[in-house]
């Protein structure tokens, strides 16, 4: 059980770092936003493994759900206004 938990935590930790790398290095901003949301989602799984279900719920609902949509609302507005400019 503990070995499995450690393995899962290590896997999700690597997945977090990989998604964070994508979020930093990609050229397109929407991909970066989605990757940051993915980081939050994996982090919420790690919280669950660390015996913090309350924090995991909050992170999944707020960190990966609402934050991503806030970014996309602002992105959508900016994209439409730059299209209007031309």
């Amino acid at each position: 059980m503990t070995a499995l938990a450690i393995l899962a935590a290590a896997g999700f930790g690597l997945a977090i770092l990989g998604a964070a790398f994508v979020a930093l290095r990609t050229r397109s901003t929407p991909v970066a936003v989605l990757a940051a949301g993915l980081v939050s989602l994996f982090a919420s799984v790690v919280f669950l493994i660390l015996a913090a279900p309350d924090v995991a719920m909050t992170e999944a609902a707020i960190g990966s759900g609402l934050t991503t949509f806030l970014f996309f609302y602002v992105l959508g507005r900016i994209r439409r206004e730059s299209a209007n400019d031309q």
């Binding site: 936003v33 960190g63 934050t67």
Partner: peptide
């Protein structure tokens, strides 16, 4: 600026972890 904000949210998640 948006990419900077993405960086801040990543650091935020890191502090929580």
């Amino acid at each position: 600026i948006l990419r900077m904000i993405v960086g801040f949210t990543l650091a935020d998640t890191g502090v929580n972890l």
